[in-house]
Design a protein around this nucleic acid. Structure first.
Length: 814
DNA sequence: AATTTAGTCCTTTTT
DNA sequence: GGACTAAATT
C-alpha cells in the first residue's frame, strides 16, 4: 500500500541504489534488463539525456521501457532514486512501476519518494510550501462531495436559484478553469458569461472560502504548485536542480496545468521523458489536451521521438480490427502496430434482441469459456472482462450474474471511501484532528440525530459568522449564552465536549501535527532525509473506535433495522482495520483523500466488470464489449457536446477497448434497450461498420433485423454481411456454436417476427398486452412508438414492437 | 423534527 | 428505474 509518510521512503531508496552499485562493482553484468528489450525500447532506455517523447502504442511494452529506463539511470550512476521525478495518473500505475523497479534493481523497496500520481506528488510539495499561497501546512483535501456542498452554500448566499444553477455545474466550470491553470482573476473572455455571468465571481469566493477553511480541492493541488513555481523562482530552481530526471506516464492525458507544471520543472536540464499514445487519449472531457503531445517537440527543441510499435499483447486479428477502427481518426501522430503473432481468433460480433438478452448471452458465454466448452482451452473467470461505456450498463450484468450465481467484481463502482458511513466516520476523525473543520462539523452535527435540526444549525451558523469563529466555537458561545433550548442543548453540549476530548487525545499523541513548514530551502531536502517515522503504537486505533462509540454513531447503525445496516457496521470495522497501516489519523485521512481505490484481494476467480475508461492500461485474454449502439457508444452526449472531436474520442475509446484483448474479443449490440425506464430501439454503432470484415466473425442470430441494423451507415460493409451471414447461418454450423443456435431458436425466434412486424399496426383505442406492464389501452401513436395507458402500470410511452394485441397475448411465450 | 410521499430530473467517462 | 428534493403528514 502506498504511504504518505513522505519521509521514510528515503532510507530504502538510498540503500537500494547502493546495493545496485555494489553489484556493478562486483563484476556482474550491470544491465541484465537490457537484454529483454527490442531495439526501439532499448533506444528509449539508453537515451537518457535531453527531452524524449516515447510514442508507445497499446501493448508495446512501455512500462517495461519506462522502468528499465529508471533502473538504467541508477546503474549508470546518473541519479539517485530520490532524484527522479516520475508521475503517473493512477495509483495503480504508480504501484506497478514501483514493484517493477524494485524487481529490476533486485530488492523490494517501499519506493521512490517522487514516484506517484500528479496529485500525490503535488501534495508533498504543497505541504512544504503551503504558506506561499496562504495555507497552513496542515491543509485538508476536500473531495467532490465537500466541494459541492460548499458551492451550494455560495450559490444560495448569492441569491441564485440552485435549480437553474446547480452546484454541480459550477463545480464542473471551476474544475475546468483549474485544469487550464486559470486563477479567478485570469478567467476571461467568453468564460465570464458562464453561470449567469457570476461564474468567476463565485469562483473567487470559493477560493477565498477554501483558504479560510485551510482546504484545497483536487484541482488546487496542481494550480497552487504552478502558482508557487511561477511566483517564486527560487523555489522552482531548487526543484529543477533536485529532480535530475523527469518521467511522465500517459502523457496524452495531461491537462494544461499539469503541462505547465512539468514544463516549469524540466526547464533547467530538460531531461524529461514523456510516454504517451495519442490514440489512447480518452480524457479530453476532463481537460486533457492531446495537443500537449504535439507541443512537446516545439517546447523542447531537439526532442528525440521514439516509437514503440511492436505489440506483444494481441492476436493479429484483434490488432488489425483495432488498427482499422482507429484509422478513421484524423490528425493522428501515426503509428503502425505490428505483431509476430499469427492466426488466433477473429473479433466476434453478435447482435441481441435487447440489453437483458445481451447480458444473458454474455453470462453464458463467460461460463462456457471458463469450462472450455467452446473448442478452446478454458479461460478462467479472472481472465475475462466485460468493458462497458457507461457505468449504468453494469446493472444488467450484475443482475444477471447474481441470478446465475456467477462471481464477478466491479471495478470503479461505488467505492469504499465514498460510502455514506465511511464518509461520516471520516468526518468525525477530521473533527477530532481539527475541530475548526466546519464542513466535517456540518456533516455529523446531527448524525446520529441529536435533535439539532435546521433551526438550531442556523443559529450556530449565525453565531459563528458574527464572531468570526468556527462552528464548534460558535456552538460553544451559543451554549454559554443559553441561546439554545431544551433537549438539543444537552446534546450539543455533549457533542462539543466530545470533540474537545478527542482533539486533546490527538494533540497528545502527535505534537508533530502542528509542525511548521520548512522555512528555508536548504533544510528542505535534509528534513526529508533525516525524518524518522515515529513508533506506531496503534493508539489511534483506540481513539478511532472511541470516537465512533462516544458519538453514538455505531449505536445508530446497531439500532437501525434496515437490511443494509449490518453491512455498514461491517464497513466501519474494515475502516478501523485499514487504520492499522498508518501511524495516525492524519496520515490515514491524507491517504484516503488521494487514494480512493478499493481492490478486494480475495482469491476467488471472478469476471471483471468495468468501464472502458477504467480498463486503460489493463489486459485480459478474453474481453467483451457490449452496447455498441449509436447514442450509447459512441455516446450521444459526447457527440452533441464536442462534435467531431467527441466522436474521435469515442473512437479512441473503442480502440482502447479492443486492444485490451489478448486472444478473444467480442463486440455486441442490442436492438432494444431501456433508457431512463423507457424502451428505445437502438441502431448498431457506426463503429461496427468501421471494423474490417476480414477480421471479424459475425455471429448474429437470425430474425434480428427489427432493431434496424444493416440499414446502417456509410458503405455498411459489415451491416450487410450480418444479414447475409445470419441468413445462411453457416456460422452456427461450425462446431463451437451449436449450442448457441439451439438456445437462440428456442428462446427468441417465436416472438421476434411477430414483434417486429406489428409496428404501426395499432390505433388509438386498441387493447394491447405488454410482458411487464400487462394489459392496457393505446392512447396515442407516433411513428413506431405508442402511448399506452396500462390498467395497472399507468401511462407509458414505448416502442410498438413491445406490445401485442391483447387478444393474441396468450400466443406469445414471453 | 422526523418520516413519508410525490414529483423532478436524469446519465459518460474520474485523479 | 432510481437518486434527489420539496412538500405533506405524523
Amino acid at each position: 500500500m502506498a504511504r504518505f509518510d513522505e519521509d521514510d521512503a528515503f532510507e530504502g531508496a538510498v540503500s537500494l541504489s547502493a546495493r545496485a552499485m555494489a553489484r556493478t562493482g562486483a563484476g556482474m553484468r550491470p544491465e541484465p534488463y537490457l537484454d529483454g528489450l527490442n531495439p526501439a525500447q532499448r533506444e528509449a532506455v539508453e537515451t537518457m539525456d535531453g527531452p524524449v517523447l516515447m510514442l508507445a502504442g497499446a501493448g508495446t511494452g512501455k512500462t517495461k521501457a519506462l522502468t528499465c529506463r529508471i533502473a538504467h539511470l541508477m546503474t549508470t550512476g546518473r541519479a539517485q532514486l530520490n532524484e527522479v521525478l516520475a508521475v503517473t495518473f493512477t495509483n495503480k500505475a504508480a504501484r506497478e512501476m514501483k514493484d517493477r523497479i524494485g524487481a529490476l534493481l533486485g530488492g523490494s523497496i517501499e519506493g521512490m519518494p517522487w514516484l506517484g500520481t500528479f496529485h500525490s506528488v503535488c501534495v508533498k510539495l504543497l505541504r512544504r510550501h503551503a504558506e506561499l499561497v496562504g495555507l497552513k501546512t496542515s491543509f485538508t483535501i476536500l473531495d467532490t462531495d465537500d466541494q459541492i456542498r460548499l458551492l451550494k452554500q455560495l450559490i444560495l448566499a448569492a441569491n441564485m436559484d440552485e435549480k437553474r444553477w446547480p452546484a454541480r455545474m459550477l463545480a464542473g466550470l471551476i474544475d475546468g478553469w483549474k485544469n487550464k491553470a486559470l486563477t479567478p482573476d485570469r478567467v476571461t473572455g467568453g468564460e465570464t458569461a458562464a453561470f449567469d455571468h457570476r461564474g468567476s465571481e463565485l469562483y473567487a469566493q470559493y477560493q477565498e472560502r477554501l483558504r479560510t477553511l485551510n482546504a484545497v480541492d483536487f484541482g488546487d493541488l496542481l494550480l497552487h504548485m504552478v502558482t508557487i513555481f511561477q511566483k517564486y523562482p527560487d523555489v522552482l530552481e531548487r526543484y529543477q536542480r533536485w529532480f535530475k530526471y523527469i518521467l511522465v506516464d500517459e502523457y496524452q492525458d495531461t491537462n494544461v496545468a499539469q503541462y505547465l507544471w512539468l514544463r516549469l520543472l524540466a526547464q533547467g536540464h530538460k531531461n524529461i521523458c514523456c510516454v504517451g499514445d495519442d490514440d489512447q487519449s480518452i480524457y479530453g472531457w476532463r481537460g486533457a489536451e492531446v495537443g500537449n503531445i504535439l507541443r512537446f517537440e516545439r517546447d523542447f527543441a531537439g526532442a528525440k521521438v521514439i516509437r514503440l510499435e511492436q505489440n506483444y499483447r494481441s492476436t493479429e486479428h484483434i490488432l488489425a480490427a483495432a488498427s482499422k477502427l482507429i484509422s478513421g481518426n484524423e490528425g493522428r501522430l501515426g503509428k503502425t502496430l505490428w505483431t509476430e503473432a499469427q492466426g488466433g481468433e477473429k473479433l466476434r460480433l453478435i447482435g441481441h434482441w435487447d440489453g437483458e438478452e445481451e447480458a444473458r448471452w454474455i453470462g453464458e458465454e463467460v461460463e462456457a469459456l471458463s469450462r472450455g466448452t467452446r473448442g478452446m482451452a478454458p479461460y478462467g473467470l479472472e481472465s475475462q472482462a466485460i468493458l462497458v461505456r457507461a457505468s449504468h450498463q453494469m446493472r444488467a450484468f450484475e443482475d444477471r450474474f447474481l441470478t446465475i450465481g456467477m462471481p464477478y467484481r466491479v471495478i470503479g463502482g461505488p467505492r469504499f471511501y465514498e460510502r455514506m458511513e465511511i464518509r461520516d466516520a471520516m468526518a468525525y476523525f477530521r473533527l477530532a484532528i481539527s475541530p475548526e473543520d466546519d464542513l466535517a462539523f456540518e456533516r455529523v452535527i446531527n448524525t446520529p440525530k441529536r435533535g439539532l435540526g435546521d433551526k438550531a444549525q442556523q443559529k450556530i451558523q449565525i453565531e459563528a459568522r458574527e464572531n468570526g469563529v468556527s462552528l464548534v466555537e460558535g456552538a460553544r458561545l451559543l451554549l454559554a449564552q443559553g441561546g439554545i433550548s431544551g433537549k438539543g442543548a444537552g446534546q450539543l453540549r455533549a457533542f462539543v465536549a466530545n470533540v474537545d476530548r478527542w482533539n486533546a487525545v490527538v494533540r497528545a499523541a502527535s505534537p508533530a501535527a502542528a509542525r511548521s513548514p520548512a522555512e528555508d530551502d536548504d533544510e528542505l531536502f535534509e528534513v526529508l532525509d533525516d525524518a524518522v517515522p515515529p513508533a506506531n503504537d496503534h493508539s489511534h486505533l483506540r481513539l478511532a473506535e472511541e470516537i465512533l462509540e462516544d458519538s453514538g454513531y455505531v449505536a445508530m447503525w446497531q439500532n437501525d433495522k434496515t437490511p443494509e445496516a449490518p453491512g455498514r457496521l461491517e464497513n466501519l470495522k474494515e475502516l478501523i482495520k485499514a487504520l492499522e497501516q498508518f501511524e495516525n489519523l492524519q496520515g490515514f485521512l491524507e491517504h484516503v483523500a488521494l487514494i480512493m481505490d478499493n481492490e478486494s484481494k480475495d482469491s476467488e476467480a471472478k469476471v471483471t466488470l468495468m468501464t472502458l475508461h477504467g480498463a486503460k492500461g489493463l489486459e485480459f485474454p478474453v474481453v467483451f464489449l457490449p452496447g455498441w449502439e449509436d447514442g450509447l457508444f459512441p455516446s450521444q452526449r459526447s457527440m452533441d457536446e464536442s462534435g467531431m472531436k467527441g466522436l474521435e474520442e469515442e473512437r479512441r475509446l473503442g480502440y482502447v477497448g479492443i486492444t485490451r484483448a489478448e486472444e478473444v474479443c467480442y463486440v455486441s449490440f442490442a436492438g432494444n434497450r431501456r433508457v431512463y425506464g423507457q424502451w428505445q430501439s437502438q441502431m448498431p454503432s457506426r463503429f461496427i461498420d468501421e471494423l474490417p470484415p476480414e477480421h471479424v466473425d459475425v455471429m448474429t442470430p437470425p430474425g434480428l433485423n427489427g432493431g434496424g441494423y444493416g440499414s446502417g451507415y456509410g458503405q455498411s460493409t459489415l451491416g450487410s454481411q450480418i444479414d447475409a451471414r445470419a441468413a445462411s447461418a453457416d456460422v452456427y454450423n461450425s462446431p463451437g456454436w451449436k449450442r448457441l443456435q439451439t438456445r437462440g431458436v428456442q428462446s427468441q425466434t417465436p416472438s421476434r417476427p411477430r414483434a417486429v412486424t406489428v409496428e404501426n399496426e395499432f390505433d388509438v383505442g386498441d387493447r394491447v398486452f405488454h410482458k411487464k406492464f400487462g394489459y392496457g389501452e393505446v392512447m396515442g401513436t407516433e411513428a413506431d412508438k405508442l402511448v399506452v395507458e396500462f390498467d395497472k402500470a399507468g401511462t407509458k410511452k414505448l416502442i410498438a414492437s413491445f406490445v401485442v394485441p391483447a387478444d393474441t397475448a396468450d400466443d406469445v411465450p414471453f
